[in-house]
Nucleic acid binder design. Structure first.
Length: 158
DNA sequence: GCCAACGTTGGC
DNA sequence: GCCAACGTTGGC
């Protein structure tokens, strides 16, 4: 099995990489994804041991903050069944859950965070989805080369 | 806070 | 199954 690489977006005001580091076992469930494409990546393709670039969106400047690892493969997102949750989905049932999530664990904080500007100015990263205009997907695949390059620019080793 | 880009919903 | 209306994302 080949390890794959991903980028996941989170608003630091909601749940930052530092929050993840402080969390129990430095692990969290990635609840609240309500986009089919992002769900499919989590449900079908993310495997234990895959590595994740943890991206802070909706902040100034937006940036890659750290690296995390998938520690639990997809299972139903419990918030879809919770009527008090803003992620509640009345069309979802226990028998046929619509939304899935994975657990990720903090691995390393970026020694130098990589701003979106930096990413955009990096020719070798021009193909990264996150630098492309209008790209809203909150879970997206990253190539091994891109992942490696990001770590190098961020002076970060695992 | 604005708004462009995109995804989803629902009437027809 | 089309597409207008609406809601959300997320950079700026």
């Amino acid at each position: 099995m080949v390890r794959k690489f991903w980028l996941m977006k989170s608003e630091p005001d909601v749940f930052s990489f530092q929050d993840l580091q402080k969390a129990k076992k430095q692990t969290t469930c990635w609840d609240g994804v309500r986009n089919y494409q992002a769900r499919n990546f989590m449900r079908d393709e993310m495997k234990k041991g895959d590595l994740v670039l943890y991206y802070h969106s909706n902040t100034k400047p937006p940036h890659i903050a750290g690296v995390a690892e998938v520690v639990k493969e997809s299972y139903p997102d419990h918030t879809q069944f919770d009527a008090t949750s803003k992620y509640f989905d009345p069309k979802s049932t226990l028998e046929k859950p619509r939304w899935f999530m994975v657990d990720i664990k903090a691995v390393a904080e970026m020694k130098e965070t990589l701003s979106l500007d930096t990413l955009k100015n990096e020719a070798s990263l021009a193909e990264m989805k996150v630098v492309q205009r209008g790209q809203r997907l909150s879970v997206q695949p990253v190539t091994a080369a891109e992942f490696k390059r990001v770590l190098k620019i961020g002076r970060t080793t695992l």
